[in-house]
Write a protein that binds this DNA or RNA. Structure first.
Length: 945
RNA sequence: GCUCGAAUGGUGGAAUGGUAGACACGAGGGACUUAAAAUCCCUUGGCCAUAACCGGCUGUGCGGGUUCGAGUCCCGCUUCGAGCACCA
């Protein structure tokens, strides 16, 4: 039989489907293992060879674990809501559901050809009501919860309400937008609307008026991680800051837990670092400053409390509420003009143009320590969203304050011994404090920092501030609450209706609240989100049904929310849904949750570090708090597979001609490099006929060849259609088969590294598979040549070596070296002319995770009737690896001089004695004293003279 | 600016502190063949030596250090990549 992958591969894929080989159920008799890939957004372009990289890697691991006796969950699904389908709908009128469905089918078709062991019965699609039911449900749970800082977890909002009813805000420490203070009487006197507004300040899913990233080009707001360099991540449209009422998730309440959780999970340092940066914890001090000639007081945040004696002015963010209060009448006009100018600038302009701007408010603030009055300025270099939106400026020791002071001619007071602030500020947190305070500023009980190091000074100031009631120790986080509304159609509708302006939850029994049909996908003429077009989009609380909008009477029929949820809503808990995908009574049954617990191995791109991977962790912690996910961290081990880049090919056209010169000759002419489709180039050699047929203008192209070949140039670029470097997995499978594609993708290099796709080299992997095949079948006549004798020592050694290497490598995700180990083994067995059944049986079991199709075929060839997927992972017997004799390198002072053979069991002492009595050794030693003899097991004897 | 990675032949890349360059590609040579394809074998870091074999020197971005021994560990740089960035 010949190796005909075109018949073998489909045959076994059919077999796996028919035998439900990959179906998995909870089984208490086996340990569980949960392998997961970040599910894809099914784009219209289909899969390119980069996409399956992670899927192949996890598939190998899943199959390996299964052969090791684990009950492995390895599901796949689709992140089906998203902008491209909606943009396409706006342009063509095509319903996004139809486009999405078509794309999913195309994805599935491509995925199916690669031979993954996904349990497709567990597939989820975020856009299906049965799935987004639980996205909406989770949102409602967040709405009905608040974060208790005492217990450090989410708790029912009803408990908070009852506390308000009995004792007001007394003793409450909850995560909130604004610190509120009221008594039980006050609370009980509030109107329904007032109560709703107060509770919004505490709910985990809340509606708030916040500065948002508004993207006019996309007609929607975006989350921070969706904005890159002031433009939208998708589409590259400019983004501006706008104050809008939006649904938000109080992710910031979980900042500390999100940070702490990183210590308990097995993720790469770089991605943990990225998340730490994003959370941005900074420990500092909040201090109160009184306004001169006024009883107004305001708070600033600083991490450099030690520089309090160097404060020469204060700065407010333009958006700060204090601006209004502190602006004096004389300065009013100037301040208003400044505020108007700032408002006009987009985020992008602010980043691009960092000119120093600002305006004096007219007020002065009193330094709580020196009692000195310093001017209060307003400038956009202070951000409203961080800290308190107000700072104390210390130009000597902060570069931004320095630039501001220089620009406006404000005083700069150095506080560190010997520092030079004539050209730039001294920002480093090191040195000895001086002028803190200066002699004339001293008074009884005054804080004195002079002579201390910066670190000591920070600590001492903190204590002083606390003891004298001037402020408090405060931890700030950069992490913002997530904005959860999008003004789009193709997303989960909010299960919310508005009862006279008060947002109310649709009863749980009415979920899922299905996305209505609309005629147009654009915003309405009045600027409402696309759902404004829906006619049947009102809620009748009497019948608990969705009814026509025309019936709204604001007594029993109310308008429904018009925003939809963002992309990350559906992808935040999908791993839980895979555990129990068809359950329509809850997100995941307790039984399934307790069995599968959390994802043991998660694979995906590192680009999700500050988006999905933060939101998911937040979401899961919340569900954990309310008792719906047993493990707090959802992804125990994370592997970030690298990106596959494109390798573009170039041809060189002589200017103004239709003649193309080969790479080596191009410098002789004035040439223009042109991208050429990589699919008509093989090992950098151009297929001339295919090139002529590629485009009409090349039909009569002339060539100047090197050795009869046209050699193309190449470069590594992003894989994209416009560079003609997209390689489709289908093409590779057609030519080489899925098994070759699988091992070649693994052989390309370390999994976590980004690397260019280079079709050169795939021949080597294909050759290897054929060689393996030839261990079973005669190359010439195709006859089965497997023999049934006792394996020889060499055969056993070769096969046990590969068991050891591959087992270690698979655990370390070092798949490129496992493939090499297979190649070595097959080469050894080939040169041993080994066709031994027992040896090949082991080889097939080892190969099964990597190349399942050929392994299944060979497994059946060897006479087995079940699937190789159910075979046992072979165990290495170290006995077979032992050598009879070992060659040692004999070194003198670290330089190898000669080699000697010893029996494998020779002791270090015996080796040492034999070496030292060897005449070559005696010559090297030459009577000199020996200081040391080092015998490294199996390798080296080093004599130190 | 801060933080984290990385740097090895013509190429992708191997090397628990122990013979650097496994494995593969590419290149060169050979066998088989009318020829091609396929397959198989040999050579392949650089320099030197030699009729040939044996051999010698050098070599993992740069400069130091620890060690009998360093691609690997430590200190100081250079370059590239990634993340954060008026975050007080």
């Amino acid at each position: 039989m010949e190796y005909d992958f075109k018949s073998i591969e489909p045959k076994w894929r059919k077999y796996w489907v028919e035998n439900k080989t990959y179906q998995v159920t909870e089984d208490d008799s086996k340990p569980k293992f949960y392998v997961l890939n970040m599910f894809p957004y099914p784009s219209g372009a289909g899969l390119h060879v980069g996409h399956p990289l992670g899927y192949i890697a996890s598939d190998i691991y899943a199959r390996y674990k299964r052969q090791c006796g684990y009950n492995v969950l390895n599901p796949m699904g689709y992140d089906a809501y998203g902008l491209p389908a909606e943009q396409y709908a706006i342009q063509t009128g095509q319903h996004p559901a139809i486009t999405t469905e078509a794309n999913i089918n195309r994805y599935r078709e491509q995925l199916d050809k690669i031979g993954f062991c996904f349990d497709w019965d567990r597939e989820v699609r975020t856009c299906e009501p049965g799935y987004y039911h639980w996205t909406q449900w989770a949102f409602q749970q967040m709405f009905n919860s608040y974060y208790n800082n005492h217990t450090c977890k989410a708790e029912p909002i009803a408990e908070l309400i009852s506390k308000f009813e009995t004792s007001g805000t007394e003793g409450i420490n909850a995560a909130c937008g604004e610190e509120l203070s009221f008594t039980a009487e006050e609370w009980n006197g509030y109107s329904e609307k007032e109560k709703s507004d107060v509770l919004m300040n505490y709910r985990i899913a809340y509606q708030g008026e916040t500065m948002v990233n508004w993207c006019q080009g996309l007609g929607t707001v975006l989350a921070n991680d969706e904005v890159v360099d002031g433009v939208s991540e998708r589409g590259g449209f400019p983004v501006e800051q706008k104050k809008m009422t939006q649904w938000c998730l109080r992710v910031s309440a979980y900042s500390q837990r999100l940070l702490d959780g990183l210590n308990s999970i097995d993720w790469s340092e770089s991605i943990k670092e990225t998340q730490k940066n994003w959370i941005g914890r900074s420990e500092g001090t909040e201090m109160q400053f009184k306004v001169k000639d006024s009883d107004v007081e305001f708070t600033i945040f600083t991490t450099r409390a030690d520089t309090i004696f160097g404060v020469t002015f204060m700065v407010l963010a333009p958006e700060s509420e204090l601006v209004e209060t502190l602006t004096t009448d004389e300065q009013r006009a100037e301040v208003d003009a400044y505020l108007a100018a700032v408002k006009k600038r987009t985020e992008r302009e602010r980043i691009a143009d960092r000119r120093v701007t600002g305006v004096f408010s007219g007020s002065y603030a009193i330094n709580p320590l020196t009692k000195e009055a310093v001017p209060v300025w307003i400038s956009d270099y202070v951000l409203a969203g961080y800290g308190t939106g107000a700072i104390m400026a210390v130009p000597a020791h902060d570069s931004r304050d320095y630039a501001f002071a220089k620009h406006f001619g404000l005083e700069i007071r150095p506080l560190i011994e010997g520092c030079d602030v004539s050209e730039e500020s001294f920002d480093a947190k090191e040195g000895i404090m001086v002028n803190s305070p200066r002699e004339e500023q001293m008074y009884d009980g005054c804080l004195v920092l002079n002579g201390l190091t910066v670190k000591e000074a920070i600590a001492k100031t903190k204590e002083y501030v606390k003891a004298n009631n001037l402020g408090r120790i405060k931890v700030n986080y950069r992490l913002r609450d997530a904005i959860f509304s999008r003004q789009r159609y193709w997303g989960e509708p909010f299960p919310v209706y508005y009862k006279n302006g008060i947002p109310c939850m649709v009863p749980e029994s009415c979920l899922p609240l299905e996305l209505p049909e609309i005629k147009e996908y654009k915003p309405t003429e009045t600027g409402e989100p696309p759902l404004g077009h829906a006619t049947k989009w009102a809620f009748d609380i009497k019948t608990n049904t969705v009814v026509e909008k025309s019936l709204i009477d604001n007594e029993t029929v109310f308008p429904l929310e018009l925003n939809t949820m963002p992309g990350f809503a559906g992808s935040s808990a999908y791993y839980l849904r895979y555990m129990d995908p068809k359950n329509n009574t809850c997100l995941v049954s307790e039984k399934a949750d307790n069995y599968w617990k959390s994802v043991d191995l998660y694979l995906g791109g590192s680009e999700h570090a500050t988006g999905h991977l933060i939101y998911s962790r937040f979401w899961n912690k919340f569900l954990h708090d309310i008792g719906h996910s047993v493990v707090e961290e959802p992804f125990n081990k994370l592997i970030n597979q690298g990106m596959i880049q494109g390798r573009s090919n170039f041809v060189y056209r002589i200017k103004d001609t239709n003649t193309f010169v080969s790479l080596g000759l191009k410098d002789k002419y004035d040439t223009t490099p042109l991208h050429v489709d990589v699919n008509i180039v093989s090992n950098d050699i151009l297929d001339l006929d295919a090139f002529r047929a590629w485009r009409p203008e090349y039909a009569d192209a002339q060539f100047e060849l090197e050795d009869g070949k046209y050699i193309c140039g190449w470069a590594v670029e992003k894989m994209s259609k416009s560079m003609f470097n997209v390689v489709n997995p289908d093409t590779i499978i057609e030519k080489y088969g899925a098994d070759t594609l699988r091992i070649y993708e693994m052989f390309l290099g370390p999994l976590e590294q980004s690397k260019p796709w280079d079709t050169n080299g795939i021949d080597g992997c294909h050759r290897f598979i054929r060689k393996m095949w030839n261990l079973f079948f005669d190359n010439r006549n195709g006859e089965l040549i497997v023999t049934d004798e006792t394996p020889s020592k060499d055969e056993l050694k070769s096969i046990h070596k590969v068991i050891k290497k591959v087992s270690e490598d698979v655990e370390n995700f070092s798949y490129n070296t496992s493939v090499s180990a297979f190649m070595i083994c097959v080469n050894e067995l080939t040169s041993l002319k080994s066709h031994n059944k027992q040896v090949l049986d082991i080889l097939v079991r080892l190969a099964a995770p990597f190349m399942p199709h050929i392994a299944e075929e060979l497994w059946h060839t060897l006479g087995h009737n079940d699937s190789v997927c159910n075979s046992e992972w072979p165990v290495c017997n170290e006995e077979y690896l032992k050598e009879d004799s070992i060659t040692y390198s004999i070194s003198f002072n670290g330089k190898t001089r000669f080699t000697m053979d010893f029996p494998a069991e020779a002791t270090a002492q015996e080796i040492q004695d034999a070496v030292l009595s060897n005449e070559k050794a005696i010559a090297y030693i030459d009577g000199k004293a020996i200081r040391k003899v080092i015998v490294v097991p199996k390798k080296i004897v080093n004599v130190v003279i």
